[in-house]
Design a protein around this nucleic acid. Structure first.
Lengths: 241, 241, 241, 241
DNA sequence: TATGAATGAGAATTCATTCAT
DNA sequence: GATGAATGAATTCTCATTCAT
């Protein structure tokens, strides 16, 4: 996995494989929590139960370790996208896709934070990643396929690009999590409370599907109750919690 | 910090005001570019045309300077939100609001990056900011008012919360900019090209307004042409650029 | 009091006299607590309710302020020594003198700490103090007089120098207080508990007077009970407290 | 500090041991001379022939280095106390003990100054020292044993505690050295001249033994001449020097 | 007389990284 | 292959002090 690391030797020992994995996991935690500049080599080595020197032995320097982290989470994300099975019904498929995407962000906070950090670095490392270079991004295809299928069946409007749909789906899922702290403070509520998270999951499906509805279609009857309380300032006790 | 610091003076002198402002501006640049951990006091003082020592004289330490930066961009953002004049027509008002919000993000990249960074810090500093504590967030009211007005007139569906609308508007605008690097790489296009930015601006208005359309309404005829080319991988030359 | 300070002006204002005094008192606290190197100008000015600049205005620099502090406590100590009234009975006089000296140390912890600190500085500042240069040290005379008187009356041995007696008296009183922390830790008791302090006061009188007893004299019957428990290690509960 | 610091290594190399020792010795000099606050890391590293960074590598920070210094001098002092061989004759033993204690202070000025400094810090570091916690203070036992032995033989009075005797012995020795500067100035003589030091050594033995004399005993004939001149003010030329 | 503003010179400490076996 | 020892180059922050009116 690492370029030029000790994994190239003929017969890798179990022990060092395990150590390398532990280092990478510790690095994910650390870079995810503190960003590239804030991450500390020492903390990573401690969490991995080894010494600083080993990180250099395995990864050469801090930047290459960071790149390995990016590669790992990217690979995992791609894997999850590949595992998504597209149902036949485009509407249901789109709904499942959006939910799946949201669920993935929710269950992979490291991914969200590492992506934020990498964008703060203006994508410096992801641009030169071999993994990204090699691998296509399955979600692009999935959305594209789903959209075409729905359009062919007349259940999706025709004047919409899959690029826009993809960006819309990611926006609505990612932002809610990535900006939870400032938004919770500004709005004065805990956006991450269970009921709010559930309500948002439904909301973003509705937003996308409503948008995809072809011109003549009748708007579906929406759920009659809104499970979260109206926006209120100043940390009001959350009646929905 | 020495007793009798600059914040205590009764009548500030022109000269020191100017320097303090230059320091703050340089700090906005630096923290925005490198995040809290990556920011360097020395770079800030150099950009401001002074020496490190003055930052400590004015702000005490790195963290307080960072907080001043957060306070400043927050205040500016609030100001822009206050300046937004809500038109009478709710549909047009909503459209303008979304566009305005997007335009603000586009023209204030520092704001976007600083918010990303602050969320990476889990909102540690914004939570304890006096400015945020004191000031309400005008956009909350604006969205709420617009929504209520449109609902009263029957042009907006009734089963939607202003909290969701606010988060939707912010998501669609913010994410496109905040995650431009990773998304551009993944999708294989330059999301920030002029035509793409224009198209996205229109798209997010459409998404929101389509969602707000009341059940019985006829979907408006969408613009017949999609100004951006379909998603394509591998840094294809952008035909629309 | 201060050399070259603002007190030289013709009509000193009440306010600045008071401030100067407050500064000096704050400086006594600070230098006494932290020593010369550890003392902070800022803390002194804050405690005195003023700003750093004023200390420089009144005293010129840190060293001169420290010297003013030394001068003040020296003057106070000399005053206390002058106020001591020597009784006619040399034995009783000596006993009172020792007790008085001990009591003074106990009630002036600043004095003890400042003297420790000044000795750590190898007497650098006290050597060049005008006050010390000008003023004789009354205790020298008092001890000398008492000793001579007792020797003339035959109640004190004749082969003892007043220098030794003075140093003995000061040693027994000062050390117990100055080294209370290390000694308490080593011995494993709280040397500063009330009963122990009382017992020590009596003990040092006994030591000195026993030593001064002329050759043929019968040793006085000492007090039959020792109010403090024997030395024991490890912070044993103090049964005498 | 980096994980895997020098204290963890299994088999220390000669070279690093030597450097670590040099650093500790330089630190003893520096802390002893300037106290904790006045000590400079740079001066220590220079005297030890290394760079600042190494002090942090070995000791982590200034405070831990200071604690190592305290531990070292404490250990050395304990060692010296252990090496003291108690003679059979309690009177002679006590005399030797007092002389030994005085000689130790005289030959270890660092010890005296570091103890002064530590007491100025209110014993903050010695209280939390593992060395002190683990090790008993041999002098306590020695004095106790000697006292009991003398009391059993009837040559020491019975109404005296070993705690008081220990504090008396330490007071008379320590203070003379610790407060030499202020006392020399006050009294107007050089207390550290060779004859005065010799005379004081004898004096403190006499003081303690006179005090320990049992009630009925005849006071021993003291030495007929006092080798030092009477107290005189103003830096008179010392005729005994 | 009084005082707010400004600052140079250092001080402790951190951090990623390389040396040497 | 693996690891303990060592370190150069910052980096944040402190502190007494002076400037300027």
């Amino acid at each position: 996995m690492t370029a030029g690391g000790p994994t190239r030797r003929g017969v890798p020992r179990e022990r060092s494989e395990a150590l390398e994995t532990r280092v990478l996991e510790a690095a994910i935690d650390e870079f995810s929590e503190h960003g590239f500049a804030g991450a500390r080599i020492e903390r990573i080595s401690q969490r991995a139960g080894t010494v600083d020197r080993m990180l250099y032995y395995y990864y050469g320097n801090k930047e290459r370790l960071y790149q390995a982290v990016l590669g790992k989470i990217y690979t995992d994300m791609i894997g999850a996208q590949r595992n998504f099975v597209t149902p036949d019904d485009p509407v249901e498929g789109m709904r499942q896709l959006i939910g799946h995407s949201w669920d993935h962000y929710v269950s992979h906070p490291h991914l969200v934070r590492l992506l934020m950090n990498e964008n703060l670095l203006r994508g410096k490392h992801i641009a030169q990643s071999e993994q990204v270079e090699r691998t296509s991004f399955p979600l692009v295809e999935t959305v594209s396929t789903l959209l075409a299928s729905g359009q062919a069946k007349g259940v999706f409007r025709s004047d919409v690009s899959s690029e826009h749909m993809l960006m819309t789906i990611m926006s609505l899922g990612f932002f809610y999590l990535s900006n939870q702290y400032t938004c919770s403070t500004w709005i004065g509520v805990d956006l991450m409370s269970r009921p709010r998270r559930k309500a948002w999951r439904k909301h973003i499906c509705d937003v996308v599907l409503q948008f995809l509805m072809p011109p003549g279609a009748t708007a579906p009857q929406p759920s009659p109750v809104d499970p979260v309380t109206p926006v209120r300032r100043r940390r009001a006790a959350d009646p929905s919690a």
